[in-house]
Design a protein around this nucleic acid. Sequence first.
RNA 1: GCGUCGGUGGCAGAGCGGUCAAUUGCACUAGACUGUAAAUCUAGCGCCCUUCGGGCUACGGAGGUUCGAAUCCUCCCCGACGCACCA
Length: 392
Amino acid sequence: MSEVNLDLTRAVEQIYPSREALQAVLASGRKLTIYHGVDPTGPHLHLGHATNLILLRRFQEAGHKIIFLIGDFTARIGDPTGKMSARQALSADEVRQNFITFRRQAAKVISFRGPNRATVVWNSRWLGRLRAAEILELMGKVTVQQMIERDMFQARRKNGKPIWLNEFLYPLLQGYDSVALEVDVEVGGNDQTFNMLMGRDLLRAYRGREKFVITTTLLVNSKTGGKLMNKSEGGLINLDDSPEVMYGKVMALPDEVIFSIAELCTLTPTATIADWRALHPRDAKMQVARAAVTLYASVTAAAKAEAAFVATFQKGGAPTEMSEVRAAAGERLGAVLIRAGAVSSQAEWRRLVLAGAAREVAGGIITDSHLTIGRPLELKIGKHRFWRVTIT
RNA sequence: GCGUCGGUGGCAGAGCGGUCAAUUGCACUAGACUGUAAAUCUAGCGCCCUUCGGGCUACGGAGGUUCGAAUCCUCCCCGACGCACCA
């Protein structure tokens, strides 16, 4: 653990109460307990989560204790942060389905093995046991004014949108995690600032302890200002995407964000990233894509993914691995593709054919949407959908 | 409880008796262009039918008026806002 350089600037937006205070504690040599929580509202961890995990990894390598918290209880309420409308509640089962592989995904970045292994905790363990009296006590720590001060609550009031009481409870419960865990540091995206500071207040109120809060930089598109890892914005890059898919998704990102990705989502040294800025944008992007796949999969996978990408897209070929669907001879191609989930309806298939978007990998464009299958086919639909149709 | 406004496609948000499968923006898909993209331009974007043609299902829910309803009426459900009530 000697001289591990803990860079408190890369990917870090802000540190509460102050960077200096945290540095002082770190300099004392004290080993800290640090946690980061993720709500399993979906089944994947993505590049946005990775920023936090990478920071945790750096702390872990410096010998600090890491706790990876799965917010299985809080996920069911739904975090109102940034939401213009209330989220619908998830069932306990859905949540369980979602987090089932979280640890495996997180293990791509932080280590759950070895002497200083990270631990996983679920917040239902304590939140699920809170009794009414305890919840009332918790609610007695924060005022309504403090709560509705938040921007998005203000915005919703202005727009006549509902604010549900359980949404008020969300920051309290998330904050209570800090109390239950008695941690020294919490790491999270800067969109979580309010919730994390709530935990800081609560920890002080309950235990008289100080907690550092480190907010990390969010992946945003500098041009549009939109969050990058966002379902509505399109490209969600998941940590468990296959190497080829991840490589392709990184390549599909707009130029202006690639260095943010490099800094926030890969382990590439800052100096190397600086060198990449001199490259042709496409080549820089390939470097970043390769670095990402290397981290989340492996070096060899990254090399393979890159080769596949070049062959498929830059040279217009087809990937070696494509989705397969079996069909009976004489079956209508459109029907088969709907069954396979390649297209959503006859209507969509017809539109694609009409647009000239469906072609055989080896040959020509398919012009007849009513084509029946007589032999095995390798299809390319649009730019990204590749399907191999085999005959049973 | 009373009153007012409102509930439209993934989201935002028009339409307020026929020309509405529903303007528009975003998102999304495809084509062209490229550096894989992005930007730009073009087209598409409920489902089914081989058709520039036809059918079906849709505008919170259930009924009703009408030749015809997303649009009018009744009841119900849900939300916002205001007022009242509170042993």
